[in-house]
Design a protein around this nucleic acid. Structure first.
Lengths: 179, 179
DNA sequence: CCTGACATGTAACGAGTTACATGATTGA
DNA sequence: TCAATCATGTAACTCGTTACATGTCAGG
């Protein structure tokens, strides 16, 4: 399972509570791997049994206690082992593609409206990613070693969104040409 | 669930047995939505209870009987209804991105080897898709209405694979530059 | 005789989502 | 007083995968 490894990577960067991790999975890491807090707590429990992480309670003023997790040496070993195994190639999976394929059996105008909404969403996401790149990595030619991975992932996000937008444009053009 | 609708689209094009559908999900439709035969039989059962499809047994010579499914009017109505509801935007989900992000905690050379394998896989997939496009849609400027959806989905596949390959190239370059 | 294509399922499990459950503090 | 943020979980359910289960026929 990749969620465990996503958590290990996140904890290797910085210790965190389940709540902190849930917020990270809403932002940075969450751009390519989503997880709900419920699932995170569940998996953290299993990971602690497996000794990949350990926790200690931290009391706070005016706030609930929190359980701060950190990665163990066994966790670091597992990360090393996992990184050396080839990643299975994930097949594409797109409900939108199914719908596009079946346009002739559906509401053509609604599908086109959907394409326009998706195009706008891709556009917004590109703007967001590019602002993020500008802010965190203004000089991509001289990145620190520990920044490279996150930067390349961001680049992957930008490329994917640009492609999504280009696809929407092609679909709109094809449908307009046909009219 | 989209599998039900993928099956509806497939049956709207042509009646099929569970076995036939499983083969279609290994090829054309399967390029953007995978399903095992076990899952298909399970879902077909539910869809028949819901009256979206109906089946009749067909005896064959020298072969086992088969249950041929066809879409009902209710099934067509459902397809129309579904097509008019906006498709939820599927967030990216990539174990490979997690691994890339965590390269500093792993085996850098193994990750790079993985990138090269993935690049080759994208390249092969592009060749496959382009041959398919050439064979089925030699003249994209003049497509029949019932071909347009499948053609555009194929285009989406080509664009996605090209992007995947471009990303791999960027990763390889960045790691080589750093050395 | 053995493999592969044809044909249809069940059972057990794992991953992930949705709904439920609780409780403190801060600011509008 | 009401909503938002902080903080941690359980329970029920759905979707999908893997393993198991069975049997025919054609071709090498």
């Amino acid at each position: 399972m990749a969620l465990e490894h996503a958590i290990l990577v996140s904890l290797a960067e910085k210790t965190a509570s389940g709540y902190d991790l849930a917020r990270r999975f809403d932002a940075s890491i969450g751009h390519f791997w989503k997880a709900s807090h419920q699932q995170i707590y569940k998996v953290l429990g299993r990971m602690e049994s497996d000794k990949w992480v350990e926790s200690h309670l931290v009391a706070q003023d005016n706030r609930p206690d929190k359980k701060v997790y950190s990665i163990t040496n066994e966790g670091r070993d597992e990360l090393m082992r996992w990184s050396s195994v080839p990643t299975p190639i994930e097949p594409l999976r797109s409900e939108f593609a199914v719908k596009l394929r079946g346009t002739q059996f559906g509401d053509r105008e609604a599908v086109l409206a959907d394409v326009r909404v998706r195009r706008a969403a891709h556009e917004a996401q590109i703007a967001y990613y590019e602002a993020s790149a500008q802010r965190h990595y203004p000089e991509p030619a001289s990145l620190r070693e520990d920044e490279l991975g996150a930067y390349l992932v961001l680049r992957g996000g930008i490329l994917a969104e640009q492609t999504g937008m280009a696809w929407c444009d092609e679909i709109l053009q094809a449908f307009e040409a046909e009219r």
